[in-house]
Amino acid sequence: MAQMTMIQAITDALRTELKNDENVLVFGEDVGKNGGVFRATENLQKEFGEDRVFDTPLAESGIGGIAIGLGLQGFRPVPEIQFFGFLFEVMDSVAGQMSRMRYRSGGRYHSPITIRSPFGGGVHTPEMHADSLEGLMAQTPGLKVVIPSSPYDAKGLLISSIRDNDPVIFLEHMKLYRSFREDVPEEEYTIPLGVAAVKREGKDLSIITYGAMVQESIKAAEELEKEGHSVEVIDLRTISPLDIDTIIASVEKTGRAIVVQEAQKQAGIAANVVAEINDRAILSLDAPVLRVTAADTVFAFSQAEPVWLPNYKDVMETAKKVLNF
């Protein structure tokens, strides 16, 4: 075991897979010599050579295209999109092409691609850096969408993502990169995709969440416990596909649920979680399932982040509405 930040755990996962499989290629804007704008690929080029870890021209669509082409030649591409707000430049390669490769070729070809990309608010980035666009990806058939919230999860999920033979969008919350350390095994391990984690057990209310909102939800749960409420926190870890079994088992136990996301109310995946609960566990519900989200505006100007981003206080407030319904 070693104490690692999430960014170190990500580098460790990339190193593990570069070592394990000679087909793994890491590329993107400034991921080579520079080691990435967040140091996620630090020293990897030195260790594995320019043939395995390389810089590209500044063009996201081109990056997506070469990932697809390299996939057609039997490689296992792990491209990086520098910030996920730049997704729109590569939307066709992701949602119009690689997500459909296996289906459109009737299984003849596939895209074993893992796109890594940072996102998330709270660190005062300039425009189009922090937007939560995971909802767009979750709406695209053919993709899996993974969002870790801790160093341990990040390593195990990234190794699983890279080994998956279909495209995975691996979103890394910038605020979580170095916010805390935890024990991460130095050897390789995997965490299955599509499986949530119960981060905190409770009996009165289920909080279903992901990304940076996991920490906010745990903090809220601890505060609520002081007030006598037992709160369960589920970290989805994979937002597409959803771990329906874990969500429903928790809601059937607690009878009350809220869904917490950083994205705007009309975005993200909270509405989908609510719909699944309504479909499958309405008879267990003692109250409606409410959502904690950002407002339906464009992502806040950086100085407005503190008032715009949802935080543990918003989680507590909504939790109480449901507990007192």
């Binding site: 669509s61 081109g62 697809i68 082409g69 390299l70 057609l72 030649q73 390669s93 119009g96 092409q97």
Partner: peptide
């Protein structure tokens, strides 16, 4: 069907051939 997509993908296929 997406006009232009084959061009960026061709760059990737060619790069793959070069690497192999």
């Amino acid at each position: 069907i997406i006009i232009g997509a084959q061009y960026v993908q061709a760059a990737g296929v060619a790069l793959g051939m070069k690497k192999r």
